[in-house]
Design a binder for these strands. Structure first.
Lengths: 300, 300
DNA sequence: ATTGATAATTCCAAATTATGGATTAAATGC
DNA sequence: GCATTTAATCCATAATTTGGAATTATCAAT
């Protein structure tokens, strides 16, 4: 027996029992184990805990003191471990850290999360608006939202929505360059690019039936989708923009979608969390809520 | 790993380290064990303690809280076990319970024990003057002093002195009965007896070369040696009395020793203590002191 | 005193648990 | 890419724990 805590647990029960046998029954272990535990405890403490013969045991003064102290410590440890036991009865509270893309997050998620807070006043959010990929470890995030793909399979990821992309330009730009009727036409025209902060390089344009083949550098580059939108709206070049960014401008005619048959396969929108060990109840609840919200939302 | 305390100990070190590897080195165990301990702790707690990848680990908020609490509990347990570690530096204090024979104890031991208390102000004595044999268990005694023999081999017993017995009578009694020149003479004469409270019967008289053969009941019986002495001094009968009781009366002629060649083998005087588990330092010190005092004392 | 019953203990073989080497997987830096 | 490092997993081995059987001590009852 080299388990101090277990020895204390046994000792505590023996101290409350009239003899070792009774204690062993209460503990559901053999009397031998009780003997051993007490013996080792006494050796460790350097002092007897019981006066005993083969027929009788009574606790020593020292034993009484130890029993009291032991009970305190045991209760503390049990409290430590019971804290997170009954998940249903337990009130949801604590901090949940979420990382999400700037634009998508501010536009769609923020209102939903604020609603959530009203129903769960014990929860606090720490929201990091970052276009960076899952720095879940470094940034200590509990949940992430991401548009695109995963290089990381150590997460639990749910594909909750999809994002369509449109190639768009202003009517003024089209008037100047002419209508690009095929992809190769487009490769000669001014365009905008979005930096992927994860790689430091531009997201390549994608097409259903071709690959990025621009022969000239982009007319405008940024790492912020809203800024790219602004550039496109200013007529600086053609842009390949997410649905949720350009939909309303397409509707009101400020932007014209081009080459719709070359639209790339929509990208996935993912909610993910680290899959290491158990998940705190509050994190699971927020995760499920985000999944629901994003699944039910039209991203435009 | 089903040792909660050990898991907490490992966790505490990991929380103070920058990664599992470092913690494993500090702990002197393999990294696998660290992984396992943390994993089980997380499962037990129902919540992650670290955000981690194969290259990084950082502690969660929950982990920080747990680390703090763990440290508290661990320190408490260590304090419990360290309390009685350094025996030399530790001041002697606490209660020592001693059982001893009434007469011998009051006469010889009490002054010595009072001297001891002056040198060790932290010690308290609980002295039980009882002629009963080692009720160490029932009476929760730490040390016993006893004249006679041991039926009990679960004690550590030191033979520290011996007690001679004399057959004595008053000159007046001798004048009345005549001088008993042999044991058989004595068996016809009035005598006193001492009850052994352990058995409820009289201590038999003992002789070097004969056994108890009184043909008549004793003239006087008591369970207190001093009362027996008083009866003998009153001339009620012959008594077989311990050295320390009758020596001074022999010297001043109030009692005459008879049949000195028939004196029994002296009885042993023992200091003993229960031999179960370790002995508290203060008990050992008092034990050694009693051994020394009784060894150096002439019991008359 | 002898016997019977029971509790504590000791001994030991069997079952359980812990351990770390070898391997795999992932992440980082060159 | 490739080498390096760390965490996780697998698994045979080592270490510990466990309780049955036997032993010893105690107490009660005959």
């Amino acid at each position: 027996m080299q388990n101090q805590l277990e020895m204390l647990r046994i000792f505590k029960v023996v101290a409350e029992s009239s003899n070792f046998k009774e204690a062993s029954i209460r503990l559901g272990i053999s009397p031998q184990s009780v003997t051993r535990a007490i013996k080792e405890l006494e050796e460790l403490l350097g002092e007897p805990l019981f006066y005993r013969s083969t027929r009788n045991t009574t606790i020593t003064e020292f034993g009484k003191q130890m029993a009291q102290k032991s009970e305190g410590v045991i209760d503390q440890i049990d409290a430590l471990f019971k804290l997170n036991k009954s998940p249903s009865s337990q009130r949801l509270e604590g901090l949940v850290k979420i990382t999400m893309p700037n634009s998508l997050g501010q536009q769609y998620l923020l209102p939903a999360l604020n609603n959530f807070l009203k129903e769960h006043p014990g929860i606090q959010f720490d929201l990091r608006f970052s276009n960076l990929i899952d720095n879940v470890v470094a940034d200590q995030m509990d949940i992430g939202v991401r548009v695109g793909f995963f290089s990381n399979n150590r997460n639990v990821a749910r594909r909750v929505n999809e994002m369509k992309f449109h190639i768009v330009g202003t009517p003024e730009l089209i008037a100047k360059t002419g209508v690009p009727n095929k992809v190769d036409d487009l490769f000669q025209m001014p365009y905008t690019g979005l930096i992927d902060l994860n790689t430091g390089r531009m997201w390549p344009w994608t097409f259903s039936n071709a690959s990025d083949g621009f022969s000239i550098p982009p007319a405008f580059v940024t790492d912020d989708p809203e800024a790219e939108l602004a550039a496109v709206l200013a007529g600086i070049g053609y842009g390949q923009l997410g649905d949720f960014l350009c939909e309303k401008y397409i509707r009101n005619g400020r932007l014209i979608p081009m080459l719709p048959e070359q639209a790339p396969n929509p990208w996935g929108v993912y909610v993910y969390r680290p899959q290491r060990g158990p998940v705190a109840e509050r994190v699971r609840v927020v995760f499920d809520y985000l999944v629901k919200v994003l699944s039910d939302t039209s991203l435009y």
